[in-house]
Amino acid sequence: MNHRLIEGLCLPFFIVAFWFIGSGLELWNEFIIPSPQKTWQSAQFLLSEGILTSHVLVSLYRVFAGFLLAFFLAFPLGILTGMKPKVLGYLEPILELIRHIPPLATVPMLILWFGIGETPKLVIIILTTFFPIFLNTLNGVVHCDKKLLEVGQSFGFNSRDKFMKIILPASLPNILIGMRIGLGYSWRALMGAELIAASAGIGFMINEATHLSRPDIIIVGILTIGIIGTVSDHLFFRILHRFVPWKDEKEVQNGGG
């Protein structure tokens, strides 16, 4: 672990060092790439004034709420269509069409319909998160091993037992992986939506800094997005591993895409 940590930290170290030296020697314009010192000061200022925290909280709340809503839509629908192939026949063409539309392309329409309040952001997150959860759940249910179902049948299980004791646990890894991918997608989509139209959130903070010509704040915002994304994905991976103890870590990690 320590060895891997050191290996992983090499490249970031060199990038930061290059940033320091380049800024110190004035290899580039301060306005294009602000110095690390200035960025650090801005980060401290934004943190101490509570500005960064409040923007982060707004964004996190949106992701959390949107993700939950998307899950409660996508998960039951994935199960239903997986169990009843007939339903899938009705839904597949329209879902296939929507799946290929980048959610950000719908933002102008969403603003027209819902204004620039919270609703369009939630809709954006639902649109992005829905498909990974839905498709992975569906995939898990559809590809449940028929041979295992026969075991249930030989024990005289009714459909409820078959679902609870075989289909659901068998597709759990897929479902969790769908949720993990969905979480990553929704975070990215939200940043896009906040950049276009918002009055709070990290994306908004970045956008505002653009208008104020404050590249230091933009860098703080970008790094914050990266850090929170990484941390939340890692937390989710932990949860995933706890729920799927029968798979070794590598398998789960690779499955995460």
Partner: peptide
Amino acid sequence: KRVGIVFQEPRLMHWL
């Protein structure tokens, strides 16, 4: 009432 079968493959539930 009760017929049990053992298949050629173990067919165990891999999550249990």
